[in-house]
Computed example of a mutant assay.
Amino acid sequence: MLADLTCAVFTLAVNQIFRVTDSEGNGVDLELIEAKEHPNYFASSITHRTPFNLAFRRPSAPAIPQGIYMVEHPVLGRFEGLLIAPLFHPSAPGGPDTRHYQISFG
């Protein structure tokens, strides 16, 4: 269940590949490059967890649009209904041939 996920779950998977699939079955691989908690943000009364973000990267083509995706990892399993948003950082690691994406958990 998504409400049970914490940053610690994903910290062990940094630098590993996740498969991201849209509702039509099209998939791409994203590399998890950061799992970061935001302890100063208000924790949700529903999840009772510290909010956190996951940052991913992949080669620039093809780009994936912001949307709802299924995210799968060979050890952590499958997570459905996650909103993935592109990040625009001109000085981000990887240079101009790399795109970055984020998933946020409140």
Rank of each mutant, 00 (worst) to 15 (best):
V20W: 10
G67P: 11
P39G: 01
A8E: 03
E31G: 01
F88M: 11
S104W: 11
V28I: 08
S45Q: 04
G94C: 12
L54Q: 00
D22Y: 14
T98V: 15
H38A: 00
F105A: 04
R99F: 00
D29Q: 02
N26P: 02
S23N: 08
A61H: 10
S104M: 12
P39L: 00
P86E: 11
G94P: 02
T11C: 09
R58I: 12
E24I: 13
R57L: 01
F79T: 10
G94Y: 06
A92T: 12
I46T: 08
P74H: 13
F10V: 02
G95D: 07
M70A: 07
Q102C: 09
T11D: 05
A92D: 12
I33Y: 01
Y101H: 05
Q66A: 12
I64V: 06
T98L: 05
D4Y: 06
E24K: 07
L5P: 02
A35W: 08
H100A: 01
P62C: 09
M70W: 09
H73E: 07
L76H: 09
V9D: 15
T47C: 08
H48G: 01
M1G: 09
A8K: 10
A3I: 11
H73M: 07
L30Q: 01
L83D: 15
K36T: 01
L87G: 05
F10I: 07
S44C: 04
P90T: 09
A85G: 12
L12R: 05
L76K: 12
Y101T: 07
G27D: 09
L83Q: 13
I33W: 02
P96Y: 14
F79M: 15
S91I: 15
S91Q: 10
F52E: 03
V75R: 09
G67Q: 06
S44E: 08
V71Q: 07
G94E: 02
I68G: 11
D4A: 13
I84N: 13
